[in-house]
Amino acid sequence: MAIHTISVLAQDNPGVLSRLAGLVSRRGYNVTSLSVGKTHRPGLSRFTLVVNGDDVSVEQIVRQLDKLIEIVEVRNLSEDKFVERWMTLIKVRAPLDVRPHVLQTAEIFRCRIIDIGEDAIVIEATGDRGKVEACLEAVRPFGVIEVASSGAVALGRTGFGARKESPVAAIQL
């Protein structure tokens, strides 16, 4: 079992999210995170799925997803070099007496403070999965009130030398 990050480029028709999510749950795939957003091409969205599985079952996921008519391209990014970011917003207890400690901890993880209230603050942790999880653990002793997480977004690395043309540009819509 290993963690795989799968990138899915899809036409953003109504229903495509249900189709993708339905396929994943119907076939019992073990999905840790699923995120979706628009791309620079109107009409195309990109899904990022993080799944847990052996190589054979992940290959099955890729192939089954690829069969969905509205899915234009599926890539298992983990087969190559890629960059990945998770973003988590953490509302953490921070009354004035401990606030400096909370801020200091946030600083260590290069978090941004995006909201401050009377006795709590909201910090934004961005990074790879390990960093975001570590950050959450680090502030837990102060008292975590709420958490919202984006799941992973990822892209294959551009690299140096002969760069493959972005496949998105070539797609006829």
Binding site: P14, G15, S18, R19, G22, L23, R26, I69
Partner: peptide, 16 residues
Amino acid sequence: IFGCSMPVVKHSFLVR
């Protein structure tokens, strides 16, 4: 029916 049939079709259209 578009939603109900999703897992049992090759594809489907809801024509708006």
